[in-house]
Simulated scan of single mutants.
Amino acid sequence: MACQSVRDTANRGLMDAPDGYGLRMANVVASVIIPARDAAATIGEQLAGLALQDATVAWEVVVVDNGSGDETVAIARSFADRLPLLTVTSCARPGANAARNVGASVAAGQFLLYCDADDVVAPGWVAAMVDALATYDVVGGLIDNDSLGTGAMQRHPPGVPVAAGFLPRAITANLGVRRAAWEHVGGFAEDYEYGCTDTEFCWRLQLAGYAIGYADGAVVAYRHRGTLRSAAKKAYLTGRARGRLFRDFHPFGMPRPRLAGVAVRWARIVVVTPLVPFSRRARWWWAVEAAGAAGRVAGSRKFGVRYL
């Protein structure tokens, strides 16, 4: 593994574990993995949601600190007496994918369940994920776009929608995968930049022959970007990452956007521009669309492709 994990003891250390601890670890079916960086403001809500789970199988939580400078680790440790098994570990290499891989490397479960430190899982999330993974190799759950506020961001649709006209994908805010499948494809791509990390992972799994499914009972309340600046930044980085996706997956069938569609997208940006000073919704739409289009141009240049 490219990023080394340093395990510490939120519940108990392996050296001073009580009788039966090793057996409990051996019986763990599902491991919830949460990458976290400077998440002190939100991780408590997520862990509180996990503390309300009604799962009947043995499961654990693994929090992977990715270089936090705030109280993320302390808050995570404070939930040791409210979760069935809790491990707080660390990953020095920046990037959520590196942290996700480290979490899997120290997790005990055959099912790896991924969520984020700034969202909140519903009480039946673990159970629904486990049920779905009995049928599918990788699954996505239902994104609740409303409970934590939507701003003017684009909503995540139900299901596992086809991305970029190629293959379905789930987002890592609500994703489960069988450990065997995760191991076979080598885990998450740690050198992939923010914006398409979950898409790349889901596509690689499907191209390796694994089946993706949907768990509509696995609900996660999603925290959309709260500022125009952060929303535009996300759109730009996602657009730029599409260039790399196209470079890597075009040989397998990922299509190039049609020029007519590109022209319509840019034309709409131009048409809406005069409304930006007068309408918050228009302002958010324009910022996200323009940033995404600019990101695609930047990604095309960076990765030597034409993907606009």
Score class of each variant (00 low, 15 high):
residue 1 M to L: 13
residue 2 A to C: 06
residue 5 S to P: 12
residue 8 D to S: 15
residue 14 L to Y: 13
residue 15 M to H: 11
residue 22 G to H: 09
residue 31 S to W: 10
residue 37 R to E: 02
residue 42 T to V: 07
residue 44 G to Q: 03
residue 47 L to S: 06
residue 49 G to W: 08
residue 57 V to N: 03
residue 58 A to V: 14
residue 60 E to W: 03
residue 61 V to Q: 01
residue 64 V to R: 01
residue 65 D to H: 05
residue 67 G to W: 06
residue 69 G to T: 12
residue 70 D to F: 09
residue 75 I to G: 02
residue 78 S to T: 10
residue 85 L to N: 10
residue 85 L to T: 14
residue 88 V to G: 01
residue 88 V to H: 02
residue 96 A to K: 11
residue 97 N to P: 00
residue 97 N to K: 08
residue 98 A to F: 05
residue 98 A to W: 03
residue 99 A to T: 08
residue 99 A to C: 05
residue 109 G to H: 05
residue 120 V to T: 13
residue 120 V to D: 01
residue 130 V to F: 03
residue 140 G to E: 01
residue 143 I to G: 02
residue 145 N to V: 12
residue 145 N to W: 12
residue 164 A to T: 02
residue 167 L to V: 04
residue 171 I to F: 11
residue 172 T to R: 03
residue 174 N to T: 06
residue 175 L to H: 04
residue 181 A to C: 13
residue 184 H to P: 00
residue 186 G to W: 06
residue 187 G to M: 13
residue 191 D to F: 12
residue 193 E to W: 07
residue 198 D to P: 03
residue 201 F to P: 03
residue 203 W to C: 02
residue 205 L to M: 09
residue 211 A to S: 13
residue 214 Y to A: 06
residue 217 G to Y: 08
residue 217 G to S: 09
residue 218 A to H: 02
residue 219 V to I: 15
residue 220 V to N: 09
residue 221 A to R: 13
residue 226 G to Y: 04
residue 228 L to M: 11
residue 229 R to K: 14
residue 229 R to D: 15
residue 234 K to H: 14
residue 235 A to C: 11
residue 239 G to A: 12
residue 246 F to A: 00
residue 247 R to P: 01
residue 249 F to S: 00
residue 259 L to P: 01
residue 261 G to T: 07
residue 265 R to A: 10
residue 269 I to Y: 02
residue 270 V to W: 10
residue 276 V to F: 06
residue 282 A to F: 03
residue 282 A to T: 09
residue 283 R to H: 10
residue 286 W to M: 06
residue 288 V to D: 11
residue 296 R to T: 00
residue 296 R to V: 00
residue 299 G to V: 01
residue 303 F to E: 00
